[in-house]
Write a protein that binds this DNA or RNA. Structure first.
Length: 494
RNA sequence: CGGGGUGUAGCGCAGUCCGGUAGCGCGCCAGCUUCGGGAGUUGGAGGCCCCGGGUUCGAGUCCCGGUACCCCGACCA
């Protein structure tokens, strides 16, 4: 690989370009031949798989089961929930035909006009409609409830502008869809799942998040309440990293899903849906990376420790390689994922730089001097520090080091967020903070959609959420001067 | 859909103003020397210069028409 390939564009000058370069050069993903669609490369997918496995386990621990619903949704399903169709209509891929044929003029293949579908099919942008159409057949009595299903799937949203991982025309995600007998139970479910997401973001990804309610403007199309986790990226923009919606009875009414309750009366089912996507990959990258490349939290790194032999000639390589294998076995026995890089056609310095770019948390290097002294060089990616330690007892040291790195990455991100969260009381201060500093801005808001809209128009900042833990605090709206009961979280966002 | 920009080797680009038959850097292949932070050197392979038409003895270069992609907005996980 070229030196040139490793050199990233300047992060301060153009964060977007830098991000794009990093994703491509670290081997995570790249754009494909299809406009707006992304190829997730093996290294990127390995990280996503780690995320998937962890989340999947968390979903199962909270009583959920996986299922799978169709990719295609009949067009008529969309018109059943008015707000829902409003929210998604503009960005749908539509299947109109089911057959191709050879062009009679010999110019390759054309769509067969005789194979027009009676009813067009929408490639799912989200699955509420097809799922509620299905749930209708599953639910008669309160004894059939709750239904707690999740699906891992791809969805398509025909976005005009795309960015690797953050917004692509097709993306991978999970969507949970639950059905409940009571409002309270559904509300609790929505809260439980946003907590699961926050737990995952903070304890696995090392990304601190603010949990809160979306304002009416920012709410999911068809939801009564949307809970969100909001993370702060290093360029000062917010990223909505996961959402959990309380859907009320909207979809049950749209798809006529009624059940007989304990009292023997008919009622509509209460619903939630919740999801996170490959966008989390973007959050991971933008929250931790530095000028040398990715910084992966150990709990999600496909390779936690890379071992690099430093040697001259075949003989040394054999001897050092053998010792590295012994140490690798000890590390694996301690539950650490290890890779030995004994490629002979690239030099060690090249490997150092490459694994830094790819964010591998710990690097071990061993050369003849270490062999003689019984030592090994241990370098940590997050701090870019290294020390020489005895080989004796290394496994234990690495296990605790990985824990410290995991914690260190989170602490650093949290410190960044704290330093970039500003409380402001005037509109002038609000604008200046956004322009000069960026980050999260806590300010008073009068609670109206009009004010939110106006602020967005003037500053491009939106209400990221009304934080759960926001203390009651009397104040006046920075825009309208009307009374406000608490501060809300504003930011410019992805 | 508006406003800018770019299509030349696998990647990044120069050459286009002023027409003369294809260059640079990196990568790739082979050899030798190297090897504790992105190796050095010698040799080599690799091009429908985005597509179509026109002008010309001659077009990567000029003219006309397409098309693709990128960036900035509007839309959004």
């Amino acid at each position: 690989m070229a030196k040139e390939l490793k050199e990233l564009t300047n992060r301060e000058e153009n964060y977007s370009q830098w991000y794009n370069d990093l994703v491509v050069k670290a081997g995570l993903a790249e754009y494909s031949a299809v406009r707006g669609c992304m190829v997730i490369k093996p290294y990127g997918y390995a990280i996503w798989e780690k995320m998937q496995q962890t989340l999947d386990r968390m979903f199962k621990e909270t009583g959920h089961e996986n299922a799978y619903f169709p990719l295609f949704i009949p067009k008529s399903f969309f018109s059943k929930e008015a707000k829902h169709v409003d929210g998604f209509a503009k960005e749908c891929a539509v299947v109109t035909h089911y057959r191709l044929k050879n062009d009679p003029d010999g110019r390759g293949v054309v769509v067969d006009p005789d194979a027009k579908l009676e009813e067009e099919l929408i490639v799912r942008p989200t699955s509420e409609t097809i799922i509620w159409n299905t749930y209708k057949g599953w639910i008669q009595s309160y004894r059939d409830l709750p239904i707690l299903c999740n699906q891992w799937a791809n969805v398509v949203r025909w976005e005009m502008r795309t960015r690797l991982f953050l917004r692509t025309a097709e993306f991978l995600w999970q969507e949970g869809h639950t059905a409940h007998a009571t409002r309270e139970e559904a509300e609790q479910e929505a809260e439980r799942m946003i907590r699961v997401y926050a737990d995952f973001a903070e304890n696995w990804m090392g990304v601190p998040v603010v949990i809160g309610h979306k304002s009416e403007n920012e709410r999911f199309a068809g939801a009564e309440d949307t809970l969100t986790i909001e993370a702060l990226m290093q360029d000062g923009k917010a990223l909505q990293s996961g959402t959990s919606h309380f859907l009320g009875q909207n979809f049950a009414k749209a798809f006529d899903v009624q059940f007989t309750n304990r009292e023997g009366q008919m009622d509509y089912v209460w619903a939630t849906s919740w999801g996170v996507s490959t966008r989390l990959m973007g959050a991971l990258i933008m929250a931790h990376s530095d000028n040398n490349g990715l910084v992966l939290p150990p709990r999600l790194a496909p390779t936690q420790v890379v071992m690099i032999p430093i040697y001259k000639g075949e003989e040394e390589l054999v001897a050092i390689g053998a010792r590295l294998k012994e140490i690798a076995a000890e590390l694996r026995a301690a539950g650490v994922s290890v890779k030995i890089d004994d490629r002979d056609h690239v030099r060690s310095g090249f490997k150092f730089a490459e694994y830094e770019l790819r964010g591998v948390p710990v690097r071990l290097a061993m050369g003849p001097r270490d062999m003689a002294a019984g030592t090994i060089e241990v370098a940590r990616r997050d701090m870019l520090t290294k020390e020489t330690l005895p080989q004796q007892g290394l496994a234990q040291h690495i296990v605790s080091l990985l824990d410290r790195i995991q914690q260190g990455i989170y602490d650093k991100a949290l410190a960044f967020r704290t330093a970039n969260t500003t409380r402001v009381d005037t509109f002038e201060e609000f604008e200046r903070t956004l322009d000069e500093k960026g980050g999260f801005v806590l300010a008073h808001w009068d609670g109206t959609a009009e004010t939110e809209e106006k602020i967005k128009e003037l500053t491009k900042a939106t209400i990221r959420c009304i934080p759960w833990d926001a203390p009651a605090e009397k104040g006046v709206c920075i825009y309208s001067g009307k009374p406000s009961p608490r501060r809300v979280l504003f930011a410019r966002s992805y």
